[in-house]
Write a protein that binds this DNA or RNA. Structure first.
Length: 437
RNA sequence: CGGGGCGUAGCACAGCCUGGUAGUGCGCUCGCUUUGGGAGCGAGAGGUCGCAAGUUCGAAUCUUGCCGCCCCGACCA
């Protein structure tokens, strides 16, 4: 993409409404534009990142055996009356009336909808286990939206819903998602920690929040220091026993959010306990028959008798992750994207646009990168060098190639890594090879 | 929902107290000079001062009502 033909409205100054770093950087990098409180438009750069994260999440869900569907944003009220949540949900639910006076709502979540789909079509235990997921926009009318996309009212979320014959089956489904989440966050360049979460009235031990460590995190977390050195599960199809082993390994070490943490009775000694702030980026939950019961979602078991299915739900806040990743990955000059979610892999800077030799060298490398399928943002504008460098640092692409007349005399270009700041002088061909391999 | 703050050009702000026809910096447009870390000079464009009512000869400025946004708290992916 040529910057001269792109739409990337960057700002030099900090917008005053943005207090936290990810929100400031997203606005300054021209990734989003606020529409109203907690509701944002995604501009090209932000949209690319959102789609990258979405794709990583999708791939890991697919690998874990979940099947993608897409449910609507607008749901009928009656569906929610079945589970008694139409009245219980309160003001966070955005209620709408259509032209015929029918009560509708903008979905804050989809348990009712997916259970309705399941019960309409699945009749036999032979069709289980089943895990259906979708990545869809949701709306929760938060009393106080804040922190940019990290706590918006409209947000993009991946929700998976598992259906099993019994608790044992549901536990396998749960473990499978638990492991998929560890892999997902690792691919996104994040160190995520699973915390035992409050299961509320349902009880049980099958609920975990995944949090990303960041100084600006919304809540305080306490954890055993060894949890940070645990290995991310490898990329393979695990057996039931292997899944349980991984979950046991990750949950045997202490980790709790402040509301669950009891300083008096903490099992970890002071020397091993680390306290930091974290951002919740996912939540997995087993809730048994809470929805299958009122929806009468049953399948015929092996003995021919109907069994009410055991369910779980598994959420990842996709749009929230954009902010969460920036909170975890930035420096004083701007964003430092993990390569897996960067909007472009490399920024190409033409230091003297209009100079014949310089233009030719840049255009040539640009064409070759494009031909090789490398995502490149080419700053071909005639802005001064300082502005170009500052802008590239702000948007945080993993690699930067700078071509100017001075280097070209010696046949070299500057090759820079955004994360380490390391610069090298390479021939254009060598730079190309680095980026293609 | 309780407490606090703010709405003046695309962005950040001054002007308001003490009413008199709208200003600064950045950004934008044009010209020239520049070109290796957010350039210099010159010339421009751009604002029903959030909305409405009131007071007044006259309101960005004073009064009242409304709307929007932000921050702290309680709540949440």
């Amino acid at each position: 993409m040529r910057l001269s033909r792109y739409f990337m409205p960057t700002l030099k100054e900090d917008p005053k409404e943005a207090q936290i770093v990810s929100h400031r950087l997203m606005l300054r990098a021209g990734m989003i534009q606020q529409s109203s409180a907690g509701i944002y438009s995604w501009l090209p750069l932000g949209h690319r990142v959102l789609k990258k994260i979405e794709q990583v999440v999708r791939e890991e869900q697919d690998k874990a055996g979940a099947v993608e569907i897409l449910m609507p944003t607008i749901q009928p009220a009656d569906l929610w009356r079945t589970s008694n949540r139409y009245d219980d949900y309160g003001k966070e639910m955005l209620r709408i009336e259509d032209r015929h006076g029918r009560e509708m709502l903008y979905g804050p979540t989809n348990e009712e909808q997916v259970t309705d789909i399941f019960r309409s079509h699945v009749k036999s235990y032979k069709d289980l286990p089943l895990n259906l997921y979708h990545i869809q926009w949701k709306f929760r009318d938060e009393v106080r939206p804040r922190f940019g996309v990290m706590r918006g009212r409209e947000f993009l979320m991946k929700d998976a819903y598992s259906f099993d014959l019994d608790y044992e089956g549901a536990k396998v489904a749960y473990n499978r998602m638990f492991v998929a989440y560890l892999k997902t966050y690792a691919r996104l360049g994040l160190k995520a920690i699973p915390l035992r979460a409050d299961t509320g009235p349902i009880g049980g031990d099958l609920s975990h929040e995944f949090i990303v460590l960041a100084d600006t995190g919304e809540s305080e977390v306490f954890y055993h220091k060894d949890i940070l050195s645990l290995q991310t599960p490898e990329d393979k199809d695990f057996s039931t026993e292997e899944l349980q082993g991984i979950v046991d390994e990750w949950t045997s070490l202490y980790a709790a959010a402040d509301e669950m943490h009891d300083a008096e009775n903490c099992p970890v000694s002071d020397g091993d306990l680390i306290t930091r702030r974290g951002i919740e980026v996912g939540h997995i939950f087993h809730f048994g028959t809470k929805y299958s019961e009122p929806f009468d979602a049953k399948v015929a078991g092996p003995d021919g008798k109907d069994v009410t299915v055991s369910m779980g739900s598994y959420g990842i806040g996709v749009s929230r992750l954009v902010g969460g990743i920036i909170e975890a990955c930035h420096d004083e000059n701007g964003i430092v994207w993990p390569e897996s979610v960067a909007p472009f892999k490399v920024g190409l800077i033409n230091l003297k646009s209009g100079d014949e030799a310089c233009d030719a060298a840049c255009d040539d490398l640009y064409a070759k990168l494009q031909a090789a399928g490398v995502e490149v943002l080419y700053d071909d504008t005639n802005e001064r060098a300082g502005g170009k460098f500052a802008k590239m640092d702000l948007i945080g692409l993993p690699w930067q190639v700078t071509i100017g007349p001075r280097g070209l005399k010696d046949g070299v270009v500057e090759f820079k890594n955004r994360s380490s700041g390391e610069k090298e002088e390479l021939s254009p061909e060598a730079a190309l090879n680095r980026l293609v391999s």
